[in-house]
Design a protein around this nucleic acid. Structure first.
Lengths: 235, 235
DNA sequence: TTTCGTATTAAAAACGATTTTTTATATATA
DNA sequence: TATATATAAAAAATCGTTTTTAATACGAAA
């Protein structure tokens, strides 16, 4: 009997949203601005300026910047302050090859992991479906978990998240964000880029996953990443 | 003619040592204490207590802790403060397998990278020689770059640092430190552990590297890591 | 004209006392 | 027993100030 359980359900589901510290809020805002280019690569990030801009004290600013340094989005120069990390094709290529090396392993291990395999597959089907339904050219807005970019991230992180190593997953997430930034800042020929058939690419990865074909999944995932890479070459 | 250059050389080489901010100093001190166990896993890291202990304000303490969170040595619980990360065999195994996956690639790529290959090999020979000459049971002291533990770290990081991805190298470094902490905190039967022939293990890795045998180098590196792993099993 | 030292300025780094907010606890009430 | 409520403790953050460091400008000497 689940009468008791039903009784306990409140009329409106009260989601106790985790209280976010100012630090976290500002971390997220700065991260967004760094990724979408509102804060330009190489730009000086003065504590005082940011303090005024976000209307806080120096504590949250300094701490958010410190976190972002470890994410590789900000550089700290001892006694000289913080600067938005520079971007270059060279850096992009480094991220690209690192992702290929690591995610090849991670997707393989994720598929070999039998625990909750079916639920994982089903979730990937759902995420892919949602991606197909959305416009992938929409504006980047990390606050909206239902946006294309956020579902895209979920899809890719989910693909590699069952390796059995949370360290690896976190590292992939960092590289994902780096790559996203490069995508926004370095791709000049947007028109050409948008001709790309991303839905097909995702479908190919998913199909191989569902066929339990690890080699195929690796191949299609790498192909997906390399297609992005090609768009960094042309002006 | 290099007379001019010679003239410019001062009698005593003045090494302009990078002025370290208090943040960096305290970061290093806290890191050391977390790795060697002076700060126990699970221990509450109160800002006020640490402030008094290190005789500073809250700024350097909070920032150092924020960095250590990203290193995985400290956990931050929103609105509840900082705690020294917990350790467990499970965590160790996660780090172990992650290192194996990643360093297998990294050492292979390092060996394939022809640029400065010979200088790299020579440096590894030197580092290995120094390791042989030192007592590997000596106390952990990261302030001394000439100590066994520090040379050991240099040897291992050097082995994998030529992959062409600084992101990868940094990740390996983080995992190295995690592993070091586990080694200090989780290995109970030290007597048994010390019977291990580390010098032989390093020599085997080095020999394969010098023979330009990538497969052998991978095999011996993994073997080295797995031997450490075995010592986490017995009480 | 170049080089070097010095003064000035600006910003980073850090302090410390204080306020606000949140969590943990202890106590009392239904 | 469960649920409020009051209290205490600590985290989070503010803000004005001080110390330290780096960047710049300027002028004197080689």
């Amino acid at each position: 009997m689940n009468v008791i359980n039903l009784k306990k359900q409140p009329d409106v589901e009260i989601v106790k949203l985790a209280p976010q510290s100012l630090i976290t809020q500002i971390y997220n805002k700065l991260k967004k601005s760094l990724i979408n280019g509102d804060l330009k690569p190489g730009e000086k990030l003065k504590i005082d300026t940011l303090k005024d801009k976000y209307d806080t004290g120096h504590t949250p600013i300094r701490e958010a910047l410190t976190s972002l340094v470890k994410d590789g989005l900000v550089e700290k120069i001892e006694q000289k302050g913080f600067v938005a990390s520079n971007v270059s094709i060279k850096h992009f290529n480094e991220v690209l090859k690192t992702r290929v090396w690591i995610e090849e392993i991670a997707i393989k291990k994720s598929m070999e992991n039998k625990e909750g395999l079916e639920a994982w597959e089903e979730n990937l089907i759902l995420l892919n479906h949602r991606l197909n339904k959305r416009d992938w050219t929409e504006k980047y807005n990390p606050e909206n978990p239902d946006s294309w970019e956020m579902i895209h991230k979920k899809f890719h992180i989910s693909l590699i998240s069952r390796s059995g190593s949370d360290y690896l997953t976190k590292f992939c997430e960092q590289l994902y964000d780096q790559n996203l930034r490069f995508r926004f800042l370095l791709i000049k020929n947007k028109k050409n880029y948008l001709k790309r058939n991303v839905n097909r690419e995702h479908q190919d990865i998913l199909d191989a996953v569902l066929a339990r074909d690890a080699i195929g999944a690796q191949k299609n995932l790498v192909k997906h990443y390399n297609i992005t890479g090609k768009h960094f070459l042309d002006k």
